[in-house]
C-alpha cells in the first residue's frame, strides 16, 4: 500500500509558478492541483502489477504539476477500499476549504480510478477491496469540493456508465468505455499511463501535457491496438467537459525543471503571451488568405523560437535542430 497523505508545503518559487500559470491564457489556468489516484482490485497478479505500475507512472506525471509531491495521493493495495477513498476525498475537501481565498488556493482536482468496474441497478461501481465504490459515493464525496476545475478519469471497464450521472459544469470526465455495456477489462489505462509517462502525447511540444492531449493519445493508441490485432474493439473511450485543453496533467522537459527558477519563470510568462498570440492567429486560419495566415503565423513563431532559445540558454540546454548549410 502506498498512501501519500496530502500535506500543505509551499515554496516561494512554487508560488511564482502558480502566478505564471494563472497568466497563461490557454493551457496554464490551474493555480495548484491536488490529485488522488486509486488503483482498484486487480483480480489477478497480472492486473495488480499493471495497475500498480500505471499508477506509479501517473503519480510521477501529476507531481510535476503540483507545488509539492505530497499533493498527489495514491491509494493502492489493501487500502484501496471504499472507506479510504472517501476519507481521502474528505481530507482533500477540508484542505481545499481551508485554503480557499488564500494565495495557496487549490484550483484543480484530479481523481483517477484505475481498475475494473461494473454496472448494477444503482449504476456504475468501481471494484475495490470490500464494498465497491459507487457512483453515488463519488457524487457525494465530490459535491462539497469547490474548485474551478475537476478532472475525473475512470479507466475501468463499464466506466462509460458513470458519464451521465457524473457530468456537470466545470468537470471534465474521461471514461475508458462509452457505456456500462462495455464490460471487458480495458486497455485504455496502459496507453493513458504511456501518455503521462513520456513526451509522446505532447503534440504541440510546449512541455505541458493537457487532459485533451493525454486522452487523444490514449484513445488513438487503444483503437489502433484493436484495429492492428484485427479484434472487435471492446472499449470506446469518452471525454466530456470543456476544460480538457486547460488542465495540465504533466509538465515535461525544461519546464519541469524550471519551476524553481524565477528567471525562467519570467521568460515563460513572456512565452505564454506569445503562445496566446500564436493560438489567436491559428484560430483565424479559415478566415485569412493562406499567404497572410502563414505570414502572420511565421512572425509569431519566429518570436516564440527566439524566446525559446533564450529560455534554453538560461537553462543551459543545448540548442537542438540543425543549421541551414
Amino acid at each position: 500500500m502506498k498512501l501519500h497523505k496530502a500535506t500543505i508545503i509551499r515554496c516561494v518559487y512554487g508560488m511564482v509558478f502558480i502566478g505564471l500559470l494563472h497568466a497563461l491564457p490557454l493551457q496554464f489556468a490551474a493555480a495548484d492541483t491536488r490529485a488522488v489516484i486509486v488503483a482498484g482490485l486487480g483480480g489477478n497478479a497480472e492486473y495488480r502489477a499493471a495497475f500498480e505500475q500505471h499508477s506509479e507512472t501517473m503519480i510521477g506525471a501529476l507531481q510535476s504539476t503540483t507545488t509539492s509531491p505530497d499533493h498527489v495521493t495514491l491509494l493502492t493495495g489493501a487500502t484501496s477500499n471504499r472507506d479510504s477513498v472517501l476519507a481521502s476525498l474528505q481530507l482533500l475537501t477540508d484542505e481545499i476549504n481551508e485554503l480557499a481565498g488564500t494565495e495557496e488556493a487549490v484550483d484543480t482536482v484530479v481523481l483517477i480510478l484505475i481498475g475494473h468496474g461494473n454496472m448494477n441497478r444503482d449504476g456504475w461501481q468501481f471494484n475495490v477491496s470490500g464494498p465497491d465504490l459507487s457512483v453515488v459515493d463519488l457524487i457525494g464525496a465530490l459535491a462539497p469540493i469547490n474548485v474551478a476545475q475537476e478532472v475525473i478519469v475512470a479507466s475501468a471497464s463499464a466506466s462509460g456508465g458513470m458519464l451521465k450521472s457524473m457530468s456537470q459544469p466545470g468537470r471534465t470526465i474521461i471514461t475508458a468505455t462509452k457505456s456500462g455495456g462495455e464490460t471487458i477489462a480495458v486497455r485504455f489505462t496502459e496507453f493513458f499511463a504511456e501518455a503521462l509517462g513520456s513526451d509522446n502525447a505532447d503534440f504541440d511540444k510546449n512541455e505541458l501535457l493537457t487532459v485533451r492531449e493525454a486522452f487523444t493519445y490514449a484513445n488513438d493508441a487503444t483503437q489502433s491496438y484493436f484495429k492492428d490485432q484485427k479484434l472487435l474493439a471492446s472499449e470506446h473511450a469518452r471525454l466530456e467537459g470543456d476544460d480538457a485543453v486547460s488542465v495540465t496533467l504533466a509538465t515535461l522537459g525544461a519546464l519541469r525543471d524550471a519551476k524553481s527558477n524565477p528567471m525562467i519563470a519570467a521568460l515563460l510568462d513572456e512565452r505564454s503571451e506569445l503562445e496566446a498570440a500564436f493560438y489567436a492567429v491559428r484560430s483565424r486560419k479559415s478566415e485569412l488568405p493562406e499567404d497572410t495566415y502563414y505570414s502572420e503565423l511565421e512572425a509569431v513563431l519566429v518570436q516564440i523560437a527566439t524566446l525559446q532559445q533564450r529560455i534554453d540558454a538560461e537553462l543551459g540546454n543545448e540548442p537542438s535542430g540543425e543549421s541551414v548549410e
Binding site: 511540444k205 523560437a305 537542438s320 535542430g321 543549421s323
Partner: peptide, 8 residues
C-alpha cells in the same frame, strides 16, 4: 509550436 528542431 514548441518543437525545438523546427524552431531552430
Amino acid at each position: 509550436p514548441f518543437y525545438r528542431p523546427a524552431q531552430k
